[in-house]
Simulated assay, not measured.
Amino acid sequence: MSFDALSGAPRLLIEAELSPVQGQRFQPTGFPDLGAAEYPLPNSDRRGLLIESAQSMANRLEAVCWDEAAGTLDSALTGLPYVVSRLPDGEQTNSILEAHRLNSPYLVTSKEFDEIKAAIGFEKDKPFDRRKLAAALLRFDPNSLIHGIFLEKVGGVVRLPRALSAFIEAEGANVAASGGVKVDRVQPATTGESTAYGKAAEGYGNVPYHRDEYVAEQIKAYFNLDLALLRGFGLPSEATDLLVTLALFKVRRFLHSGLRLRTACDLDVPETGVTVTRPEEGFELPSLEALTDRVSGCIAACKPHFRDPPVLEVTYKK
């Protein structure tokens, strides 16, 4: 497997054709006070539809790295650094799963986080060297170099943009309206003097509801890996190789096992449905098996740049 075709490319753009696993209907993402993000397509009478947003996809691309059953990183990523926070009730959280990654209040408030602050080297009223930030993130949490980070609790300029972004949208989308009834087998009625238990607002009675799903002519997932940004970190070549491989591993793993977005949105990608659109020639997205082997080798090659041991454990302090 060679990445030579990517050496001069500023971006790696990937598209994946998707379709519902069964039937034609699917449920898109929704937003408060807005519902589904439906919009007119430029120069067309067809409608577009956002199925999964960039912010949600960033979280999903992290989630495929985590083995929920084992409570640790996927076995292919063994040895990759991250930070674990021990909470007062015996539970724990970590920088892979937290919404703000290393900037989570469950991590940055700990005494042990001072080790990361020292490595970042931010000093107030002095120019900030982002290459030093990149080296620190490589040491403590390389996933943050791909996901992006804003450590505003350390300093307002301690940030890096997202290197791997993605979203899913549909073209030629139309509403498939349906509905149902929540059935109460004890007390069907919710009005009148004879109501024995309570009203519908309290969860009682038969409650009809409407439901909007969608059908579409085409569904696509889009992935954008900013290769120029990764090179600009000034990291050793083996570290840049790790970040590119890890990003592609996330894409392949998501397409393989992360496409059940919601109960009513279970998608699939055909074997020939993945296309690299930039660079236009010379590169194809490797298989999941090939990327799994390569990412393990990259982690081993970068061990001298990682913290030892790679998992930093901190204790949450309110």
Rank of each mutant, 00 (worst) to 15 (best):
K220Y: 02
L246F: 11
S194V: 08
Y214G: 01
G232D: 09
Q218H: 13
D184V: 02
R294L: 15
V215L: 02
D241F: 01
K182L: 13
D293L: 09
L285T: 07
E169I: 00
L255P: 01
H210R: 14
S194W: 07
E169G: 10
L285H: 08
S296C: 01
V269I: 07
G234E: 08
E280Q: 14
E284T: 15
Y197K: 10
R278C: 01
L288Y: 12
K199T: 15
F233L: 05
G192V: 10
S165L: 01
V276S: 07
H256S: 14
L259E: 04
K182H: 14
L255Q: 02
G179M: 10
F223K: 07
G234N: 10
S287E: 05
N206H: 15
E169L: 09
C298A: 15
T190P: 03
L259T: 12
V269D: 04
E217I: 00
A173L: 11
Y214M: 01
A200R: 14
V269A: 12
R252F: 06
T292M: 01
D293V: 04
A264E: 12
K199N: 12
V175L: 10
T195D: 01
R262D: 14
S296T: 12
L267T: 07
R211N: 13
A264Y: 12
E284R: 15
L225P: 07
L248D: 00
G297P: 00
T275Q: 13
G205H: 12
E281T: 15
V276W: 09
P208W: 08
L164H: 12
A216H: 02
Y204G: 06
G198F: 05
F254D: 03
E202T: 04
N224E: 14
V186D: 13
E238V: 10
Y222L: 13
V274N: 06
R260D: 12
F233Q: 02
S287M: 03
T191H: 09
C302I: 11
V175N: 04
A228C: 03
C302A: 10
K182M: 11
D268G: 01
L164K: 11
Y204L: 11
L229W: 05
R252N: 07
T263F: 06
L248T: 01
P236Q: 04
V244Q: 01
A228R: 13
V295G: 04
R231D: 02
V181Q: 09
G198N: 07
R253W: 00
C298K: 15
T272W: 06
P286R: 00
L248G: 00
P279N: 11
A166S: 15
E281P: 00
L229A: 07
T240Q: 15
R253F: 00
F167L: 12
E271W: 05
A176T: 00
E289G: 00
T263L: 11
H210K: 11
A173V: 08
A170E: 05
E202A: 15
